[in-house]
Design a protein around this nucleic acid. Sequence first.
RNA 1: GGAGUCGUAGUUCAGUUGGUUAGAACGCCUGACUGUCACUCAGGAGGUCGCGAGUUCGAGUCUCGUCGAUUCCGCCA
Length: 593
Amino acid sequence: MNFCKRTHNCGELNIKNEGEKVTLNGWVSKTRDLGGLFFIDLRDRYGITQLKVLPENKEVYDIALRLGQEFVISASGNVIKRESINKNIPTGEIEIEVNEIEILNESEIPPFVIEDDVKAADDLRLKYRYLDLRRKILSDNLILRNWVYQIVHKYFEKHDFVEVETPVLMKSTPEGARDYLVPSRVHNGKFYALPQSPQLYKQILMVSGLDRYVQICKCFRDEDLRADRQPEFTQIDLEMSFVDQNDVFEILEGMFFEIWKDIKGIELPAGFRRMTYDEAMNKYGSDKPDLRIKGGMEIENISELVKGSDFKVFSDAAASGGIVAGIKLQSKEVTRKIIDGLTEFVKKSGFGGLGYLKFNEDGTVQSPIVKFLNEEITNNIKSTFSCAGGDTVFILSGEKMKVLQTLGQLRLRLAEDFDLIDETRYEFLWVIDFPLFRYEEEEKRFYAEHHVFTMPKDEYLKFLDSSDKDEIESIRANCYDLVLNGHEITSGSIRIHKPEIQKKVFSIIGLTDEEAKMKFGFILEAFKYGAPPHGGAAVGFDRVIAILCGLKSINDTIAFPKTLKASSLMDECPSEVATVQLDELGIELKKKK
RNA sequence: GGAGUCGUAGUUCAGUUGGUUAGAACGCCUGACUGUCACUCAGGAGGUCGCGAGUUCGAGUCUCGUCGAUUCCGCCA
């Protein structure tokens, strides 16, 4: 098809181009018919340029009158200075006086108007994703994502990493998330799994001597979704040989340094803050604390202070091995209604109520529990939290982890409600020394907190032979997360490369030699032939992009995201398949109940 | 698997205690208009109130179920 091809895009012309004869191709964003004067806003991904059509040019004018939203056109004419300038857009000083228009394609009336401040609901936007992506605000996310992609590739190339593609069809392993399964036609009854991550392959590449591996790859997890969780997502996967934790940190800090410098023009600190898992839990009630909250709002354990109080709820908690702890909300008006809302919030986590002490400006203390606490205890609480008039301390008591986690959630809730988050900050934090195991009460067994190949810290190796639950739970690992603004954006560990340590870990999670061989045989086999000390990490690419774009959800960093029920509204997948296809795979569907 | 919110015109929403013909804005169509850029003005078309039962003389409104979107918990690198 012949058509008049563009000489420029719709975002680049300005007053310097005055007098030039140009051709633009693009979509009709809007038309304004003033009777004797006709304006067209022509859009492409670079921007919008105004076209002007005069009725004297009858042929062109008649075409202009036919134009509808989202028609694709080619327009030629001269760049002229506008009579009235639009300061809101980069091309606002000029317009094209059109002497030729060609309609390249018509459009049906779109189901929603394509504008930055889109009004359509999510499902409609997803069904017509291609229209939604015509919005600059959205396509800019994909463009930024591409920039980060390029920075990452260059960065790792510069540091001698080798990009290796690992299989997408792999062996299903039962640990971790639920696998997406792919049936095999050649081996009826057998299945591949899509990778939850290329974990095992990258470790084997270390045994191969590749030394430094990186891959920006798709990962798949068949679990329920969230705003920051898609069934398929992208990670920057990396692994290094002959390294300890600090080497991995250094490489990743360097990567984030370059990304933030290039994309945001921000110089991140040379080394990120570090905090142990235990400290994070005790101070923030979370393994991914948001450090942007004004005043810090750290949790204080006041078990000792209230141990002897007459308030049974507190003294009982302390006596039965639990804790009493609280957080302070600084100088905010806390009404009855707010307290009720927060009480409702903690009740959902199984607490009977929320204790609070309001320290008034006049020195009095307002609280339903103050009558149970003597003056000394009240004063001690006040000084522990460094309270001034106008501050409120919220207190929970009970089982330690539950108290800490709920206070952590309360902290985030208060920060949200009282607008205490400094949105301009980027707070990176390494959370280190995670527990190696997690005890599952219901099944009465240990699970690997990270994954089964995570190396325990040297000083805890002795507990691998222990049969004491507390000792095993106390084992800390060379396992780390990078947290940014309360989001986990990276996770990794130093791996076990010694068979005797691996054996002990398997034994603690109740995996017999036989089972281990069946599930992980190939990697254990590989490890027999000289596995170097190695470790690595995986970066949640979508989450990083979402934060860079200022988005709460990762969906708008992904071209074609899926809904919470993991379906794609545009191409309507998943879908049923023909019986012939199932027959070839040797699969028969169960009848629906 | 559980809890919450939402579903009414092409779109975003309003719709009172269950009561006559379900409204507004934007978009769309027709006409007018030579400096608009959220153009303006005049007129017009457009509805299976997500779907299915039930209660009722009467349901957009109440009840139950179901489907979809979304937020959170469980789950999950």
